[in-house]
């Protein structure tokens, strides 16, 4: 009965803040194939919003560029690659620290990476100065015990 979902999608869009909502909604719609809870879906949307915003406001700053999202579904896991060809990050370890931001004047809080790390299972950052940044993050959707029926079924099986 267990069917293994294997699926992929790619998304490319111009680095405009108005595309942030589009990006997270598109990824959420794609991720819904894994049957996540509302909470899990909210986590994914928030992490996507953080990574995409970073490409737009830090990677490209005021310049225009392309933000790419590559999403894969593998069994119960969603794997997301979100990348820009912008200015890159000098020191990734420092950038990831909570409250660290290079744009405090824009009321940035420096919590983007902390939120990605807390809402996803795994977050990896690759970056080269002048070439761009790629964030790869993944999350496994927990299996659901959805109704009493399956519990009874389980009991029957274990009794035999």
């Amino acid at each position: 009965m267990k069917s293994e979902i294997e699926n992929e999608m790619k998304l490319e869009f111009i680095s405009k803040s108005s595309n942030e909502a589009f990006a997270r909604i598109a990824v959420a719609a794609f991720a819904s194939q894994l049957d996540p809870t509302i909470e899990e879906l909210a986590d994914i949307k928030t992490a996507v919003s953080e990574a995409v915003t970073n490409c737009i406001i830090h990677g490209y700053d005021k310049k225009q560029g392309i933000v790419k999202i590559f999403a894969r579904l593998k069994e119960k896991e969603i794997i997301l690659e979100i990348s820009d060809k912008g200015k890159g990050i000098e020191n990734i370890d420092i950038a990831k620290e909570p409250l660290y931001t290079t744009k405090p004047n824009l009321e940035r809080s420096g919590m983007g990476f902390t939120i990605m790390e807390s809402f996803m299972d795994k977050v990896e950052v690759e970056s080269v100065i002048g070439l761009g940044t790629k964030v790869t993050m993944s999350k496994t959707i927990k299996p659901k015990i959805d109704n009493e029926e399956s519990d009874e079924e389980f009991e029957l099986i274990t009794k035999e």
Partner: peptide, 13 residues
């Protein structure tokens, strides 16, 4: 229905 870290800066500000 949705908030990311931009909300933190908004409220602190």
């Amino acid at each position: 229905t949705f908030m990311d870290s931009a909300g933190i800066g908004l409220i602190i500000g």
